[in-house]
Amino acid sequence: MIWAAVFLVAASRVDADPYAWGDFFHSCHPLLEEHHSPIDLDVHMRRDSSLEALQLHGFDELQEGHWTLENDGHSVLLSLGSGMSVSGGGLPGLFHTLQLHFHWGSPSSNGSEHTLYSRRFPMEMHIVNMKSVHPNMSAALEDPTGLAVLGFFIDVVYADNVHFSHISQKLSSVAHKGQVTKIRPFPLMSLLPKHNLSQYYRYHGSLTTPPCSQSVVWTLYEVPVYISWTQLAQFTSQIFSTEEDAEQVTPLQNNYRHIHPTYSRVVSASRDAGLVSSGAAGRPVGLCHFICVVCLLRLLASVL
């Protein structure tokens, strides 16, 4: 497990208020370090025409063996085995794909880690990739660009996402902390907004959990992944941060870190990302139109 080594020491402290992580981990202190994640993606982004779509090697293929889904008490993680990697799009080298995991809110609140023009989405999915030159996670965390994380906002519509069901149908098997189950591999590309993968934002930041290592090249995609209300509720209401035999069962909710200042960091918009326009109240024009279309479709669905 990618985070097993990272959380070996942190496990007893990560349950604390994220604002208090700095008391236990120097690198988590927001006043001592300036490259924290997550951040708000706002009007201060700069266009970088050199940022083209990343190369997602093996994401369209059916991998051999099996994948492992686990509830580690802090998130639901899917370990992806070997066979996939990412490169290009301004990344400093080739990165091996290791796992994906999720952040969410509660039945009454949204829970994405990053926000887009101050909007928090219901969920966020992170695909974690490690630079190929590093032998292990410890070495990668010492490199300012040792990890490349692909972040996808998750929004909600009325119909189930049949591809997301590969994961959501297995969640009942990992409802409690420490539970693990196997998943038959599927093309990872089927989860992603594959027609919009050239639209993203890029910045350098940190892990969003202890030890908050500032070793992450973040790529946040503009167009969300869509799941149903039922699939969202499986995370917000049916996953627990405690063991099955615990005296008091605690729902796993709001497992996201607070927003941090950008400071002097450059946040770049890819060549095809929505254009920033003051006429659109600071939102990317393309994204504004996209959101309007989605809202119209939702309205029609509620009437029919």
Rank of each mutant, 00 (worst) to 15 (best):
V267E: 07
G88S: 15
L191P: 02
P135V: 09
A273F: 02
M125Q: 02
M45E: 15
G89I: 10
G90M: 07
Y203Q: 04
G65E: 10
A5N: 11
M125T: 01
P185R: 12
G111Y: 02
D60K: 13
K177V: 09
R120F: 01
Q199L: 10
S277H: 14
F7S: 05
H289N: 10
F121V: 00
W67G: 01
S278Y: 08
M189W: 08
M130H: 07
D23E: 15
K194F: 11
L56W: 07
H44G: 15
F121G: 01
W3V: 03
Y221C: 03
S268I: 00
W67D: 02
H204Y: 10
K194L: 05
F102C: 01
G205Q: 06
W218T: 03
E33N: 11
V266Y: 03
G286N: 07
N129T: 14
T219K: 13
V156Q: 09
V294W: 11
H289I: 12
P122C: 06
M189I: 15
S75H: 04
I127M: 06
A273G: 03
A281M: 10
L207H: 04
P122F: 03
S268K: 14
P251W: 02
L188T: 05
F25E: 05
L207E: 03
P107W: 02
N129E: 06
E70A: 07
A280Y: 14
E124V: 01
P251G: 01
V162W: 04
S270T: 08
G93C: 04
D155P: 00
V162G: 00
L77A: 09
R257F: 01
Y158L: 10
H258E: 10
I183T: 07
P185G: 09
D17P: 00
L56C: 04
S108R: 12
S241I: 04
F95L: 06
H289R: 11
G274H: 10
N196W: 06
V14F: 05
S106R: 09
M1A: 13
P30L: 03
Y256S: 07
R120Q: 14
A139D: 14
L62H: 08
M125K: 03
V156Y: 06
A281C: 13
L192I: 09
M137D: 05
D155L: 10
Q63Y: 01
S37E: 03
Y263H: 15
F152Y: 11
H74I: 06
T115R: 14
V180I: 15
W3N: 12
D42P: 02
S27G: 00
